[in-house]
Nucleic acid binder design. Sequence first.
DNA 1: GGAACTCGCCAC
DNA 2: AAACGTGGCGAGTTCC
Length: 463
Amino acid sequence: MQLNPKTREAYNLFHDGILALGRAEQQGIRVDVEYIEEKQAQLTKRIDWLYKRVEGTKFYHHWEHSQKGKVNIMSDAQLARFLYDVKKLKPIKLTPTKKGSTDEESLTQLNIPELNHILKIRKLKQLRDTFLEGFRREQVNGVMHPFYNLNLARTFRSSSDRPNFQNIPKRDHESMQICRKALYPRKGHQLLEIDFSGLEVRIAACYHKDPTMLAYINDPTTDMHRDMAEQLFKFKYDKAREDHYTLRQAAKNGFVFPQFYGDYFGNNAVDLACMWGGLPMDKWKPGDGIEFNDSQLANHLIDNKLSSLGLFTKHVQKIERDFWENRFPDYAAWKERWWQTYQKNGYIDLLTGFRCSGVMGRNDCINYPVQGAAFHCLLWCIIELDKIARLESWKTKLVGQIHDSILIDAHPEELEYVARVVKRVTCEDLPKAWPWISVPLDVDADLCAVDASWADKEKYEFK
DNA sequence: GGAACTCGCCAC
DNA sequence: AAACGTGGCGAGTTCC
């Protein structure tokens, strides 16, 4: 992949950035090898048990017969052949190469107990063999040193490998606990994680300057995701209700973000209904779906004339139109303009002085400049913090980075001071250094107790 | 026995 | 008109 910063500033950012990241790599993250080996053994037992439960079934014997004995329960190719050719089941979706898919959604929809066991085995194997084993393999004397690359991502973001520090489970609580319990600060230190709130949305706003979006960003009492949840699911948001918050998350991750990335209502409707609403693919019956308003989501939607995925899809289509035509028309116009500009010039310039060129699609032209520039905000802060930390001989060290967040191995006595400096650098110094940042920036922080693992973190309030 | 490919899944 | 962006990685498979 090309490395093509257009300006001197862009070059310097990466030059200084890779040195700061190199120091974080050198510092590394403590790994509890004993815990990992114990947990891996535990996972192996659970995997074996689930495997045995599948092995004894008619389903398995049928599969074995069709394979002439050689079954590999982890082979998607075998599974697809068995389900869709031998058993003649209808695939709910196809892979990019037009074969029946065996991903989580497809297998869940088929509603066969053995497939649920296979899904669970897949999950546990990934925890054992990708995450825990990755940490174990890469650690040296109980410390692993994930690498950060600035020369791979076509967006001018970073990537990470050996092991990848940027995809450790977080959303699924069980997976998060299993993986992050392996990771520790230095003895007597504590982990402090700081992330920019809504960074990509705010950086996008610096490009398109859509007034409605700017109003959302500038007035913290408003909430774009809440408004979209109300529109998508037809209800009045009550912030005291946990089920309402669930639908807000659904709107955010199943509609708003995918729309920004260039997705469309067809996928959104399926995701919102199946993944986030727990509803079946066809017609909905009372009692279907997640709990909502002391009943079920299906009951609520049926009352609102949305009684099937088909009707819901038409509803989401209307909301998509409204989203771009009425709510964020300036954002929509910017997207179109940006695409036209690329087609005319053959490149896209970022606000941070980088230039993306080569063959790009419509969505690429919108996504690259936002993702890149957002990450550059973080990188600028990392460089600045690294400079200050060395100048002032901090015992506290920067040890990791995940696109819009940093992981700090903090000395307890320096903690409050460090947190103040981080807040100043991110929210004050950065916007001063880069005047194109025309929106306020904000950070959230999480803190772990002294000597506690990364799994046990709590919200940290800045003093 | 390795390269290249597909598929699935984790993060942002 | 078209239809989810960026990565890394493991496992299986096929080809050389």
